[in-house]
Design a protein around this nucleic acid. Structure first.
Length: 416
RNA sequence: CGGGGUGUGGCGCAGUUGGCUAGCGCGCCGCGUUUGGGACGCGGAGGUCGGAGGUUCAAGUCCUCUCACCCCGACCA
């Protein structure tokens, strides 16, 4: 992509009404646009980051047998009435609306009820199980107070997976495989060393649920972490009984701020009993399906990663999710130089390396500032300095000094 | 929902005790000079001051209501 053609440009200063670092930087760099409090549009750069995260999540979900689908945003009220979660005293984040004929609809804040009800049409025999399906969906939640930029919005993208299992054993095996898959996902997107499996309150069925908490001062949660065992306990269930249950010691636990980027939990048969989702077993009797639910906050991850890696100069993306791999800058505008930069741009893009090419005739300072702000992992500069001996400058976003290398060296660096 | 704060061109801000054609910086357009870390000169375009009502000879400035946004807290199945 040529920067001269890219939709969105950078801003010198962040809007005053935005305090959160993640939103400030993402807005300045042109990744997102704020529509209203807690509601952000994703512009081309931001969408690419989102899609890159989704790609990794999708690969890992498919690898453990997940099948992607997409549910609807408009939901019937009757399903939620059955499980007693339509009442705003019970669920206070509902956005509700009405059909022309007056019947009430809910706007999806979760999909547990509709997807489970849908399964009644497809599950009737033990032969139909297990079923593990997931989606990337926009969740709408009428938060009383949106805050922290994109980390807690009223509209956000979540990956949610639902597992339907024959019995507790089958469920547990899948549940464990999700834990492994989640750890791989966080590793791949570059926050593995800062993300920890965390015990949290379990809800209706189990004693605990599991959360995946990423350490960041910008997070809303407080966890107690045993770094050595890479195990944490959410403050909400942090007590002697739980510590003992997990064979941990209070003395080894570190109190830290973190952001919940994923959570998984078991419903047992609670929800299938409520919604009457059952199957006929091999021996002919009626059994309720064991259900699990597994979420990853896709857009929240973008916020967390921004907070985690950004520096004074701007964004810093891990390579796996960066919108582009290389930020190519041309300093100078002689025909010969332009030809050289164009050629390099073509060479890299032809090799399937994603490049954002600053072909604008701006002053150097502006181009370099923009490169820092956009946070693309590799910066390559071609200038008159390298014309004679055919060299260029390469610098990682996280390095302080550029290195002089030649084209072949660059290609091998980028392809490694 | 309780408390605190803020709304003035696309962005950041100034605007004294009400007073003249509402300013400044950035950005934008034109011309020229520049070109290795956000250049400079000259000339332009762009706002009716969040909204409604009121007080007044006169309101961006005062009053009432209202909307939006930010922060702290409560909340977060």
């Amino acid at each position: 992509m040529r920067l001269s053609k890219l939709f969105t440009k950078t801003l010198h200063s962040a809007p005053a009404d935005e305090q959160a670092l993640n939103a400030q930087l993402l807005i300045r760099a042109g990744y997102i646009y704020k529509e209203m409090a807690g509601v952000y549009a994703y512009l081309p750069l931001g969408l690419k980051v989102q899609e890159n995260i989704k790609r990794i999540v999708r690969e890992e979900m498919n690898a453990i047998g997940g099948q992607e689908l997409i549910m609807t945003n408009l939901q019937r009220s009757d399903l939620w009435q059955i499980t007693d979660r339509w009442d705003e005293a019970k669920v206070d984040v509902w956005f509700k609306t009405k059909l022309q004929n007056g019947s009430e609809l809910g706007l999806a804040w979760s999909h547990e009820e509709p997807i489970t009800d849908m399964m009644r049409n497809y599950i009737s025999s033990y032969r139909d199980l297990p079923i593990n399906v997931y989606q990337f969906q926009t969740k709408l939640r009428n938060e009383v107070r949106a805050k922290s930029g994109i980390m807690r919005g009223r509209e956000f993208v979540m990956k949610d997976l639902y597992s339907y299992s024959l019995d507790e054993k089958q469920h547990q095996a899948f549940y464990d495989s999700v834990i492994e898959a989640y750890l791989r996902i966080f590793e791949r997107i570059g926050i593995g060393d800062k993300t920890f499996l965390t015990y949290a309150s379990g809800g209706a069925f189990t004693k605990f649920s599991h959360e995946f908490q990423t350490l960041t001062p910008a997070g809303e949660d407080v966890i107690y972490l045993n770094r050595e065992k890479r195990l944490a306990i959410n403050q909400e269930v942090y007590n002697d009984e739980v510590i003992k249950h997990l064979k941990l010691n209070r003395a080894d636990m570190e109190q830290l701020k973190a952001s919940e980027v994923g959570n998984i939990f078991s419903f047992g048969t609670v929800k299938s009993e409520q919604l009457d989702l059952s199957y006929t077993s091999k021996s002919g009797d009626k059994q309720y399906v064991v259900i699990g639910s597994y979420g990853i906050g896709i857009t929240r991850l973008i916020g967390v990663i921004t907070e985690l890696f950004a520096d004074q100069k701007g964004l810093v993306w891990p390579e796996a999710i960066a919108p582009y791999k290389v930020h190519l800058i041309r300093i100078g505008h002689s025909d010969e130089l332009t030809k050289k930069a164009d050629k390099l741009y073509k060479l890299l893009t032809d090799s399937k390396i994603e490049v954002i090419y600053d072909d604008r005739d701006l002053r150097v300072g502006e181009m370099l500032k923009d490169a820092d702000l956009l946070g693309i992992p590799h910066r390559v500069v071609v200038s008159d300095k390298g014309l004679a001996n055919n060299t260029l400058e390469w610098k990682k976003r996280t390095d302080s000094e550029a290195k002089i290398i030649n084209e072949a060296e660059l290609v091998s660096i980028l392809e490694s």
